[in-house]
Design a protein around this nucleic acid. Structure first.
Lengths: 217, 217
DNA sequence: TAGACATTACATCGATCGGTGTAGCGAATG
DNA sequence: CATTCGCTACACCGATCGATGTAATGTCTA
C-alpha cells in the first residue's frame, strides 16, 4: 500500500493528461467523460494515457489527489494570510471570506465541480479512499481554520468550545448563498454582502439582546 | 409547455416505475442507471417504461419532480409543526432541527442522493428546469422557514433583517456536520449535540461579550 | 550511430446501453 | 364473444466506450 510507483513517460505529458482529465471529469463526470475526449483535451494520444495510468479509475483518483492538494494548499495559504494577525475581527473575517470565495471563481474552479461529482458517486467510492481524501482536503483546511480560531479565542475575542465545529460553521456561513444561488458568485457587491451577513451571524447570531449603550424596556 | 399529458397505462405500474427509478437514479446516477436495471427494480418490463415515458430524460425529470414535491411537503409540515407556536425558542429550534434531520434518514433518504446527482450534472441541466426545481423544492421550504422566522422576529425574540438569508443560515447550521461526516447521522446523541451547537451559533454566535449577571473586567 | 523508450495513429474486441419492433398473453369492456 | 389495451418476453440495431494490439515515428542517451 505504501509502495511508491516510479513515474513512467514524459512528465509534461502526464501533467497535460491530468489537467485535461480534470477539465472533463469536472464538466461531465466520471462515467460521461470518455477517454478519447480526455486524450483530445490533453492533446495526447489515447494510448499514451494507458502508458501513464493503468486504469480510468486510477486516472480519476490521481486527478482528485492532485487537485485536492493544490486547492488545500491555496486555502491554507488564505487562512494564514488573513487570520494570523487580526486587528478588527469582523472586518478581517469578511476579507478572509472574500478571498475564500475568490477561489471558487479562480482557475481552481473545476475542482469544485469535481467535488460535486465525488459527492454524487460517494456510494461507489471505497471508504478508505474517501476518508483519505477528506482528511487531506477539506479536513486539512478545517483543522487549519480551527487552529486559527482557537488562537483568536485564546486572546479572549471569541468564546469557542469546539474550534473544529466553529470552523465548519464559519465555512458554511461564508458561502451560504452559494448553495442556493450560484449566479451571485459574480456580483462583487452582492457577494460582499453575503459574506458580511455570514460573518455577522457567525459572530453575533440572531437573538435579540439588550443594547449596552441604550436602555431598553 | 402547459399542456397536460393524459396518463397512459396502469397507474400502479407507473408509480412502481417512478419509485424504482428513484432508487437507481439516486444510487447510480443518471448515466449509470440502466433502463433494464430500473425495469427490474420496478418489477416491470423494459418495454413498459417506454409506454409511460417517451424518454429516459423524461423519466428522470418526472422522478425529480415527484420526489421534490413529496420532500418539500414533508419539510413544510415539519416547519409548521415545530415553529408555529414557540415557547422556548432555543429548545424548539433544536427539536425542529432534529425532526429536520430525521428526514435525511427516513424513507425519503434516496431523494437527497438524487439531489447530489443533480448538483453534479448541474451544467447539463437546462436553466429553466433548474430554476423550476429550485423554486418548488428548496426555495419553497426556505420561504416557509423564512416566514416563520419573520413572525418570531416580529414578536421581538429575534433581530432579523433578511428572513430568507436567516433561514438559509439556520438550515446550514442545523446540518453542519452532515457535510463532513455522514456517519454521525446515525448516532442520536452526537446528532443532537450537532443540532444544539448549530442552533446556538444561529442564536448567539461566537463573539465573547460581557455577561449580564456578573461583572467582567 | 545504435539501442531503448515514449508517443502516435489506427484497428479492433467485447460489453453495455438506449431505444425499437414484434408477437403473444391476460384482463377489462362492450 | 369480440375488441381493445396494456403488459411481457425476446430479439435486435446502432452507437458508445474502455481497453488492448500493433506497427511506425520520433527522441534522448550511451
Amino acid at each position: 500500500m505504501t509502495e511508491r510507483k516510479k513515474p513512467v513517460g514524459q512528465p509534461d505529458k502526464r501533467r497535460a493528461i491530468v489537467t485535461g482529465a480534470l477539465t472533463l471529469f469536472a464538466r461531465d463526470g466520471y462515467t460521461r467523460a470518455g477517454l478519447d475526449a480526455i486524450a483530445a483535451e490533453a492533446g495526447v494520444s489515447n494510448r499514451t494515457i494507458y502508458n501513464h495510468f493503468t486504469d480510468k479509475a486510477e486516472l480519476f483518483q490521481t486527478v482528485i489527489q492532485e487537485s485536492t492538494r493544490r486547492v488545500a494548499d491555496t486555502m491554507v495559504d488564505i487562512i494564514d494570510r488573513h487570520l494570523s494577525k487580526v486587528v478588527d475581527l469582523e472586518a478581517d473575517l469578511v476579507d478572509f471570506g472574500m478571498a475564500w470565495l475568490g477561489v471558487l471563481t479562480s482557475d481552481l474552479a473545476p475542482h469544485f465541480a469535481l467535488i460535486r461529482q465525488i459527492n454524487a458517486e460517494i456510494e461507489h467510492i471505497p471508504p478508505a479512499a474517501l476518508e483519505l481524501w477528506r482528511d487531506s482536503g477539506p479536513g486539512r483546511t478545517r483543522r487549519e481554520l480551527a487552529e486559527r480560531l482557537r488562537r483568536i479565542a485564546e486572546r479572549g475575542e471569541l468564546a469557542i468550545d469546539d474550534p473544529a465545529r466553529a470552523a465548519g460553521h464559519l465555512m458554511l456561513l461564508i458561502s451560504a448563498d452559494n448553495l442556493t444561488d450560484r449566479a451571485a458568485l459574480h456580483d462583487e457587491s452582492a457577494l460582499r454582502e453575503m459574506v458580511a451577513a455570514g460573518v455577522h451571524t457567525f459572530l453575533h447570531g440572531y437573538v435579540r439582546r439588550p443594547r449596552h449603550d441604550a436602555g431598553e424596556q
